[in-house]
């Protein structure tokens, strides 16, 4: 490996972001306070946005901040508020046999890590020369070859908006 192949700054940044994301993701699934879990989820989303910038995908990172941290988290906090969740500690957030989830998740993780190391052992990722994905190029892709999934997504969003209104209104 050449000295120029070792990208110290990117690796340090990745390490910090990954540690923060895993830590707060564990808090999302283990916190006994609904609001704390929601705020931990914000940190995970922000870490994901930082990773997207590291992966040279600025437009996706900005969209992540706008849609997830902006809109989805507000929806979650409204959901917490409207279902009158107990603010503060709530010991009744887990199933009674929640511990059965741990071996399932660990087994899944073991299988996936084994397959990834076996299949993509030392494939390199060139984060330094990765051309910044220009927003114009992404829009060219969305609006010409991938226009059909875009239409489908538009209909899904329309149906979701109408469905959410129909479900949630009082009468």
């Amino acid at each position: 490996m050449l000295a120029s192949d070792i990208v110290v700054a990117q690796n340090v940044a990745f390490g910090i972001i990954a540690a923060v994301m895993v830590l707060f993701a564990l808090r999302v699934v283990s916190s006994s306070n609904v609001v704390h879990a929601a705020l931990s989820l914000v940190m995970v989303m922000a870490g994901a946005a930082a990773l997207y910038i590291l992966l040279a995908a600025e437009f996706v990172a900005v969209t992540q901040v706008l849609v997830y941290i902006g809109a989805v988290m507000v929806l979650f906090l409204f959901g917490v508020m409207l279902t009158r969740a107990k603010l503060g500690r709530d010991a009744d957030l887990n199933n009674k046999n929640w511990a059965a989830g741990i071996p399932v998740a660990l087994l899944l993780l073991g299988v996936m890590v084994y397959v990834l190391i076996d299949g993509l052992g030392d494939d390199k990722l060139d984060v330094t020369s990765g051309t910044a994905a220009s927003t114009a190029a992404i829009s060219d892709l969305i609006f010409s070859p991938y226009i059909l999934p875009f239409w489908a997504l538009s209909f899904v969003l329309l149906a979701a908006v109408i469905g959410a209104i129909v479900l949630a209104r009082k009468d």
Partner: peptide, 13 residues
Amino acid sequence: LFCIGVYGVLARK
């Protein structure tokens, strides 16, 4: 992160 999410789906009520 995927496995943490799967654990959350299984464990949360």
